[in-house]
C-alpha cells in the first residue's frame, strides 16, 4: 500500500496527502507526442538508466514497469493508487513507470512529457515532498541533458507546464465547507492567485466524498519555492476555514450532525449493496465523525485505506477475480462491513 495512504503525516485529518510533480524532457528526442515506438523505447532506456544503472541508493529501491507488460487490471490499480495517470495508459506500447518500494515516488516515462517525477507523501508535508522531488530531478539530470531554455525554463510538451514544470497539490477533505455551500467562494478566491480547486472524484466541480485537490496553475515566472510556499499558505487558510465551519456546525446543530454521521456509519456497517459514489459519501461522513470525536475506535488511516480499496480496480484485485458492476457493489459492501467491524 502506498505511503500516502497508510503512512503517518502531519495534519492528516483534513489534509490527506501532499504531492509534487515535475515535468521534464530530454533535449535530443522529440516529445512523446511526436515520438516513434522505437525511439520511445530508447527514451525509456535512457531515463530508467539514470536511476537503475546509476550508483545512488535509489538504484535498488526503484523498479521499472513497461506499460505493455502488465494487465489492464494492474494498470487500473496503479491509477487508483495515484501512482500513474490515466493518460500514461493510453500509449501503453510507448510508456513506462519507475516506482520505489514504499510507493512514495513514481517516475512516469513518456506520458505527455518524457519524464514526470511524482512524489506523494501522507498528510501536510509539501516542503519535504518538494525536497525529495528536487533531489531526484538532480540525480536524473546528472546523466541526461534536459530541454531547457534560458528565458522560459524547462520546456514541456504543453505550454501550460513550461517554466518550472511543477505541479504542487494537496488532497484535502472539506465536508463542512461543502455542507455550508462555501466551496464556490474558495474556488473563485484561489483562482485569482493562479491556483485551482477541483473535485478529486466525479466529474466537473461536483466532488464525491468531499475530496478536493488544490494545485497551482501558473508554472512560469515564480520559483518552485514561491509556488510551494503559496500553496502551503492557501492550504492553511482553507484548513482553518474548514475547522471554523466544523465548529459552527457543531455549535448550531450538534445533534443533527451527529445523527447524519451515525446514520452513515450504520449504513456502511450494514448495507449489502453499495456503489462507489454512495460509499465515498458515507465514508466522508464517518471520517468527519472520527475527526470530531463522534466516532471512536476507528483509525483515520483505516479510512484512507478503505477509500482507496473500494475503487473497482483494487476491489477486483482484492477479490482476485473479475466482477461485473452488480458483483462489485456487493463485494464493496462486504469489504466495508468487514473493515469497519474490527
Amino acid at each position: 500500500m502506498p505511503k500516502w495512504i497508510d503512512g503517518e503525516g502531519p495534519q492528516n485529518d483534513i489534509i490527506i496527502s501532499s504531492r509534487i510533480r515535475l515535468a521534464r524532457n530530454l533535449d535530443e528526442f522529440p516529445f512523446p507526442v511526436a515520438l516513434t515506438t522505437e525511439k520511445s523505447k530508447e527514451v525509456i532506456k535512457r531515463v530508467s538508466d539514470t536511476i537503475l544503472a546509476g550508483n545512488t541508493i535509489l538504484k535498488d529501491d526503484f523498479k521499472l514497469t513497461q506499460m505493455n507488460e502488465i494487465s489492464n487490471g494492474d494498470k487500473q490499480v496503479l491509477i487508483e493508487k495515484h501512482l500513474i495517470s490515466p493518460s500514461l495508459v493510453e500509449t501503453s506500447n510507448k510508456s513506462g513507470v519507475m516506482i520505489n518500494s514504499d510507493e512514495s515516488v513514481s517516475i512516469m516515462i513518456n506520458e505527455e512529457d518524457h519524464i514526470r517525477i511524482q512524489c506523494l507523501f501522507p498528510g501536510f508535508q509539501l516542503k519535504e515532498t518538494w525536497d525529495l522531488a528536487n533531489k531526484i530531478d538532480d540525480i536524473i539530470e546528472e546523466e541526461v541533458k534536459y530541454a531547457f531554455d534560458e528565458n522560459v525554463g524547462y520546456l514541456t510538451s504543453c505550454p501550460t507546464n513550461v517554466g518550472t514544470g511543477i505541479r504542487a497539490s494537496v488532497m484535502i477533505h472539506l465536508p463542512a465547507l461543502t455542507m455550508i455551500d462555501y466551496m464556490n467562494r474558495i474556488l473563485q478566491a484561489v483562482n485569482q492567485i493562479g491556483f485551482t480547486v477541483r473535485g478529486l472524484y466525479g466529474e466537473g466541480s461536483e466532488s464525491e466524498g468531499n475530496m478536493f485537490q488544490i494545485s497551482n496553475q501558473v508554472t512560469l515566472g515564480r520559483t518552485e519555492q514561491e509556488i510551494v510556499q503559496t500553496l502551503i499558505e492557501v492550504t492553511k487558510q482553507i484548513t482553518n476555514k474548514e475547522n471554523d465551519a466544523r465548529a459552527t456546525l457543531v455549535a448550531n446543530n450538534k445533534m443533527k450532525l451527529e445523527d447524519r454521521i451515525c446514520r452513515s456509519y450504520g449504513i456502511l456497517t450494514n448495507a449489502r449493496i453499495m456503489n462507489s459514489k454512495e460509499a465515498l459519501k458515507l465514508i466522508s461522513d464517518v471520517r468527519l465523525g472520527i475527526d470530531l470525536g463522534i466516532i471512536k475506535d476507528i483509525d483515520v488511516k483505516a479510512i484512507n485505506v478503505l477509500m482507496v480499496d473500494i475503487q473497482s480496480g483494487i476491489l477486483q484485485k482484492i477479490s482476485e477475480r473479475n466482477l461485473n458492476t452488480n458483483e462489485r457493489d456487493i463485494e464493496r459492501a462486504n469489504l466495508i462491513r468487514e473493515r469497519l467491524k474490527s
Binding site: F148, I166, G194, L220, E224
Partner: peptide, 11 residues
C-alpha cells in the same frame, strides 16, 4: 496563461 515570460525558478 502564466502572466510572465521569464523563468525565475530552478536551473
Amino acid at each position: 496563461v502564466h502572466g510572465s515570460q521569464q523563468h525565475t525558478g530552478k536551473i
